[in-house]
Design a protein around this nucleic acid. Structure first.
Lengths: 341, 341
DNA sequence: CTGAAAGCGCTTACAG
DNA sequence: CTGAAAGCGCTTACAG
């Protein structure tokens, strides 16, 4: 850290390194960028100068010169409470971080409001601050992401709820098939009156899971009218369970579209003196830590959340390299049997 | 979005807006930056041109010209699991976000490893990508933050564990006093054998809370040797409780340095058939959602986490404005009585 | 109130 | 393998 005439901190520039090493700026730039076209002893000399001066390239200058920021935005259109409240996100973030680890990109998290991003966030994403974006938890009614997608490469975590005609990249599981498997598991266990707790209707994954449940119960000749609406929070799972109990006191099973909602549902059931799985069997979705942190382990449809994060990162990295990638990457689900069903 | 000769996307520049509006780049720059020195009708014309072209200033160019990035880093030296696992962080982030809302700054979250940030993170923070930083959950043995502090304004969430001589800004509560209050509450309830579960020894807050507990029990003429080490995770709270039970089967109260650890401790107690608070009373710290999400509400020492986030943001903003700010801002704690003690 | 011009710190053809 | 020079898209004294 050197001081300028006015005593303010001044970071060393390429120029300074060049002077220190006795070469041109071009040469310093080449060694900084790992060019192989530089004489080994010059590389050594420049590297030494860089170390001596503690030089770190100015990223703004670099970005301006080659229009690359080496930053990726993770956009999550959810408020802080839900983002932190659902362990599902933790796993996704962990995966993305891991997938970016060996790259030169840094991850910038942008929490946006669920309805649509703030003007600030929009300017940030469109103003050349990031080279690409990963959007997790997309809700319908937000066409900003269509614009974003037209501006920089973006990959979605979960099939986005967007007009059909628009093409975008995403990583997902087959939510309908997964849900169908979950519901069928309940059927095979001999349950006769199977309800479901849906996720928010403006999310594709929620819709698909609901559809899968419906398919399974209808195939078994049961009614598909026992549904209550949640929003993927624990509290919503609890209140959905309450209305379900009111609608159909005789229900003996519920397929719940997320583990977090399932844990809310279970606590209501116990409050009401219904045993789980004795009186009511519960199957969740996600296999997040919410499935194992309660009193009773939740039987659930596992999706490989961490791995999905890794895939999102690798897909975006490929896009950024200009490679051709498959538009969608669908990961497998499987049943994880615990105590609730 | 316009296309250049090669069909690549090309964002409109200041230059283009100037041409469209029939003025100079200087003038466009002035209206973009809200200068009052521009004739009203010119402002109107330029604004119209901006809208027509959908112009968004290139941030790299802007940063390079005035060496301001309008970005702030939130550095959390914790792995993803702990960051997402402890609701305390959610509140802090919420507060910081709120505190930054009306500013022009965006928040970039950087998860760093607890030991010391990766080379990538370091380059990011030092490479002129952010104007300032907020560091939450600082551990000792990491002198990088001293360097960082010398480079850009930083405020710490919680008094950092750094060499005395180094001056830094932070927002905190009086952890020792808070813990003392918590332990004293137990004493006043008539408890005779009071243990504690500490946080990690490389964090200042953990040390201070431990100290506060010690002060209270010694003042009551009790031994201050009943302590077990945790690391602020739920699992560590559980295992600390197990060793405590082994050390002193006759203990009748525990002051736990965080609610999350307290919930781990409580589950062990119940497993072992000890009633809470009947057999063993528990007082936690934080008053995070971990205190209310379990079977039994945790009596705890409340710290205003969200508000602390707000204060961190406002302190940093003041620093960024070049204003003089008090070095430390200490927030109040208070007892919140629930069921566990 | 407005414009011409220099400069921010890099990268990258182009020559040699 | 290396350097001189132009250019990336802004801001900001300086003149007028």
């Amino acid at each position: 850290m050197t001081l300028d005439l006015h005593g303010k901190r001044t970071a060393p520039t390429l120029e300074a390194v060049a002077a220190e090493a006795g070469v041109s700026r071009s040469t310093v730039s080449r060694v900084v960028n790992g060019s192989t076209q530089v004489r080994p002893d010059v590389v050594t000399a420049v590297t030494a100068a860089i170390d001596r001066l503690n030089y770190i390239p100015n990223r703004a200058a670099r970005s301006l010169a080659n229009s690359q920021t080496m930053a990726i935005a993770l956009v999550v259109p959810e408020d802080t409470t839900r983002f932190f409240g659902d362990p599902f996100f933790a796993q996704i973030v962990q995966g993305i971080t891991q997938g970016l680890e060996d790259s030169d990109y840094v991850l910038n998290l942008q929490l946006a409001s669920p309805s649509s991003p703030s003007a600030k966030t929009i300017r940030y994403l469109l103003g050349g601050n990031v080279d690409g974006a990963i959007v997790v938890s997309h809700h319908s009614g937000d066409d900003f992401f269509t614009t974003l997608d037209a501006t920089i490469p973006v990959v979605f975590g979960g099939r986005p709820y967007l007009p059909e005609q628009h093409i975008n990249n995403f990583v997902d599981v087959d939510n309908a098939a997964g849900a169908e498997m979950g519901a069928r598991y309940l059927i095979e266990k001999g349950r006769k009156r199977i309800a479901t707790i849906d996720g928010p209707a403006n999310m594709q994954a929620a819709l698909d899971r609901s559809k899968g449940w419906g398919r399974a119960v209808r195939a078994a000749g049961m009614a598909d009218d026992l549904r209550a609406q949640g929003d993927f929070t624990m509290a919503s799972g609890a209140s959905a369970m309450r209305s379900l109990l009111e609608m159909a006191p005789d229900l003996d099973a519920v397929f719940v579209a997320s583990d977090l909602m399932a844990s809310g549902a279970i606590s209501v059931l116990r409050e009401r003196g219904r045993s789980v799985p004795g009186d009511v069997a519960i199957v969740g979705f996600d296999d997040s830590s919410a499935a194992t942190s309660g009193e009773i382990g939740i039987t659930t449809v596992h999706q490989p959340s961490r791995q999905m994060g890794v895939e999102m990162a690798s897909m975006l990295l490929a896009l950024l390299r200009g490679e051709h990638v498959e538009r969608e990457r669908i990961m497998p689900t499987r049943m994880v049997i615990r105590d609730s069903a």
